[in-house]
Amino acid sequence: MDSKLSNLNYCKNCGFEINNFAFCPECGAKKITKRITFKNLTQEFSDRFLNLDNSFIRTFVHLFTKPKDVIDGFINGLRKRYINVFSYFAISLTIASLYTFILKKYMEDIFAKTMVSEEQMEVSKIASDISFEYQSITSFLTIPILALISRLVFLNYKKYNLTEHLVIHLYAYSHITMVISFITLPILLTVENLYLVLWIQFPTSIFYIAYVLKKLYDLSWKKIILKTLLFFVIMSILFVIFSIVVAFIMIQTGVMPIDGTSSI
């Protein structure tokens, strides 16, 4: 069987003429001249996901070492060197979903070894079930809130607008979600200590976001610490307002009666 495809004169993706090109000059797609075989399929997988030069690994590493290059580059039109922000967010959601899928199987044992009472365990189970079920929705809601707070904190700086802060936090949130998943899953499955994981998650997330903003705005450590404290103040105020609104709605709907008994 012939392993070659018929001669390609036009790009299959955009229709641009590609007679003498290995890649389409219009959309950048690779010119495919061979039929799919196990060998070239594994080669393509290796090139895309295992090659140190591929865009995912480059993006992942540079969000540690050069976050300004990745994020500021995307904001200013750089599209080919790194994975775009929406694809990176989608990858992080996939990894977080896999993390949740694995964790669900062991949560009961983890709670049994961490919690000191049956009541505490029951409340924690309910909270984790809600968190797991609405994980994607929570991510979609959390990032705009972080972007809004971040824009308020840096209101005296005109470098990035609100939409650009959304891009910043999409990258930062996606990255730290993946990193924390990679770090905490082995800890939970071996040490089985939920509190240890929580102590890792929160400071790591705060430090990384502060680090990214420091690099993007070229701030000193003193200034970024002050900005982080202001971030906490605004976030705490919004959290209190949100908690009051939720509690009021729950009381009005009978989910949380004032006498403490639930109608559910």
Score class of each variant (00 low, 15 high):
Val153Thr: 11
Phe239Ala: 15
Tyr208Trp: 08
Pro257Ser: 06
Cys24Gln: 02
Phe38His: 00
Ser174Asn: 06
Val191Ala: 11
Ser92Tyr: 12
Lys12Asp: 12
His175Glu: 04
Thr65His: 00
Cys24His: 02
Ile241Ala: 12
Leu155Gly: 01
Asn9Val: 11
Asn84Trp: 07
Leu188Arg: 06
Asp53Gly: 09
Leu78Val: 13
Thr59Leu: 00
Val167Gly: 00
Asn20Pro: 09
Asn156Tyr: 06
His169Gly: 02
Ser220Met: 11
Phe38Lys: 01
Lys215Arg: 15
Ile241Trp: 10
Arg151Leu: 05
Leu103Asn: 08
Leu52Cys: 00
Asp109Gly: 08
Leu162Ser: 01
Ala147Cys: 02
Val212Pro: 00
Ile237Met: 13
Leu148Ser: 09
Asn13Trp: 02
Cys27Gln: 03
His165Trp: 10
Leu166Val: 07
Leu152Thr: 06
Thr114Ile: 09
Arg35Pro: 05
Val212Arg: 01
Lys159Pro: 04
Leu185Phe: 12
Val85Met: 05
Leu141Arg: 09
Tyr195Val: 09
Ile32Ser: 01
Leu216Gln: 05
Asn193Ile: 09
Ile241Tyr: 09
Ile176Leu: 08
Tyr99Val: 08
Leu229Glu: 03
Ile264Trp: 13
Leu78Ile: 13
Glu119Gly: 06
Gly28Ile: 07
Trp199Arg: 03
Lys66Arg: 09
Leu230Thr: 11
Gly77Tyr: 09
Thr253Gln: 09
Phe154Ala: 02
Leu188Gln: 12
His62Lys: 04
Ala172Thr: 15
Ser220Tyr: 13
Tyr211Ala: 00
Asn156Arg: 12
Asn20Ser: 13
Ile237Ser: 12
Leu162Thr: 08
Tyr160His: 07
Asp129Glu: 14
Phe49Leu: 04
Leu185Glu: 05
Cys24Ala: 01
Trp221Gln: 05
Leu238Gly: 15
His165Phe: 14
Phe56Lys: 04
Tyr10Cys: 04
Leu188Ala: 06
Lys158Ile: 12
Arg81Trp: 02
Phe132Gly: 04
Met235Arg: 09
Ala210Lys: 00
Ile126His: 05
Ile137Ala: 07
Ile71Asn: 02
Asn51Lys: 07
Phe49Cys: 09
Ile18Tyr: 05
Lys105Glu: 14
Phe21Lys: 06
Phe16Ala: 11
Ala29Gln: 03
Ile224Tyr: 10
Lys4Met: 13
Leu188Met: 14
Phe56Ser: 05
Lys222Ser: 11
Lys158Thr: 14
Thr59Trp: 01
Leu93Glu: 12
Ser117Trp: 15
Asp129Leu: 07
Tyr208Asp: 04
Val212Gly: 03
Met1Tyr: 08
Ser124Glu: 14
Leu170Asn: 12
Lys105Asp: 13
Asn54Phe: 11
Ala172Ser: 15
Phe207Lys: 01
Phe111Pro: 06
Tyr88Asp: 01
Leu226Ser: 04
Lys222Phe: 14
Pro144Val: 11
Asn9Glu: 15
Ser243His: 10
Glu133Gln: 08
Thr204Met: 15
Val233Ser: 04
Ile110His: 11
Thr138Phe: 15
Phe182Pro: 00
Ser87Thr: 11
